[in-house]
Design a protein around this nucleic acid. Structure first.
Lengths: 248, 248
DNA sequence: CGGGATCTTGAGGATGCTCAACGCTAGTGG
DNA sequence: CCACTAGCGTTGAGCATCCTCAAGATCCCG
């Protein structure tokens, strides 16, 4: 069993080919998500409780304040998480992509709403059943704790950004995080896809649409970035962007 | 030697009460913290790995970027967590009080620095040893996950504050959270202690010292708050403060 | 090809910042 | 016992960044 795990961890590409009867066994994001700590036998139990969903752009996935009955795994596409003030002001607290887990931050009720940015595919876990599995598979709980810990680290960074960075630094930090996110999993070095709107970026960075747009224009003018078709952004000099992101 | 440390470990008020051989059994914040899920036998194992510390105001507890070798429990006093930009700009990401846990947000290295605001007493856990205990006491891991989950919820709220609230709303939200924090554990309804400086409050809310001071003055002028001796703040009408905190 | 949504650009203005001075309090040492 | 100093808090004046409001440009999908 430990042997099986090692093989799974080391050879995700191979694993995909076999076991067509178990969707999770073939899941392309299994290693990135909580499922990566389970072996094939355990995965079958997980498979038994999940539902696969597809959502179109602007579809709501969860609503802040509702009972947190489900958790999700993003298997493809992009999701935005946000909170609203009574008068409609919005703060996007994060974007989720392939492999990200949705729903750790809750206290019986969801702490934020979630909406599809692009077309999205999701695994849905009923929370009660997942919690039952956590009791039986402690490594699943460890994994969740580690993910929550990482999310907290990211949240700290975002607070620093929101509270203390200038508009230019915010936009550069944002592009840098998209860039790193991308190159972490895929080695590619081409233009970074930026699937979300200027308004979404603004609500994520604590800026207005107009300021985001102006900042993009300014970064383009200085050659820091180049805008490509399909909303992709090319970054000629990542180190320069890094400098700009921290006020260098 | 170890015995001396253990005695230090005790919450001061309870130091002379029962079970002097097991400081945690008498700890006044036990139920509020991770230790609350362990029975007396299990607590003894926890006791064996902890060290008690006292820190004076401005003493550093952990440094961002250092190896995360220890986790802490705050048993009394107040602690601030913060991150710095290269040019010295500072964002305080949170304040910790009695019963709060310090160190969940890390990824082998600390994600932020921590410094004593008032005189503080702490339980220190070596991380490796705590993790070994987690394997043996799954309910401890569950508890940590739940705490991390709650911390994430708070982090989302703070992002909304930093990104989208006005100075007045920020200060009111801050006072409200101090008020709630206080009345949650102690039923008292008197003036709320505000032990941190205006500069700290500013760095927590993404404002300058001057703006915080001006906002306090304005709130005082409208009768929303009253400043009492010892940095305490009296809140005559909590509902009004709540309204102001959300832009009502 | 049309039309709604998104993005960009411009002009003016407000919120909160910078810089500066002053007051208050507490601790210190003559 | 009190002047002195250092740290913190308050207040003021001017200003910069980013927001608001508005209009035009571009994109995308039917």
């Amino acid at each position: 069993m430990a042997e099986t795990q090692k093989i799974d961890l080391l050879a995700p590409a191979l694993r995909r080919s076999q076991d067509a009867g178990n969707p999770c066994a073939a899941c392309s994001v299994r290693e990135m998500s909580i499922c990566g700590v389970l072996n094939d036998v355990e995965i079958k139990e997980l498979t038994a409780i999940i539902t696969n969903l597809t959502q179109d752009p602007h579809d709501t996935i969860i609503d802040e304040g509702e009972a947190a009955d489900y958790l999700f795994n993003v298997t493809s596409g992009a999701v935005k998480l946000y909170k609203l003030l009574p008068d409609g002001r919005r703060q996007i607290t994060g974007f989720l992509f392939q492999g990200d887990f949705l729903g750790i931050a809750m206290n019986d009720i969801y702490a934020y709403s979630a909406e599809a940015v692009t077309r999205v595919t999701l695994c849905r876990f009923p929370r009660r059943k997942l919690e039952a599995l956590l009791d039986r598979f402690p490594q699943l709980e460890s994994r969740l704790l580690r993910m929550a810990s990482n999310e907290l680290v990211q949240a700290q960074d975002q607070m620093l950004l929101l509270g203390r960075k200038t508009a230019k630094e915010k936009v550069c930090s944002f592009l840098l995080s998209l860039y790193r996110r991308r190159t972490l999993h895929e080695g590619r070095n081409a233009a970074v896809p930026v699937p979300m709107s200027r308004a979404d970026i603004g609500d994520y960075l604590g800026l207005t649409t107009e300021t985001v747009s102006r900042t993009f224009t300014a970064l383009k003018a200085t050659g820091t970035i180049r805008l490509r078709e399909g909303g992709r952004v090319e970054i000629p000099d990542v180190e320069q962007l890094q400098e700009l992101a921290e006020g260098g």
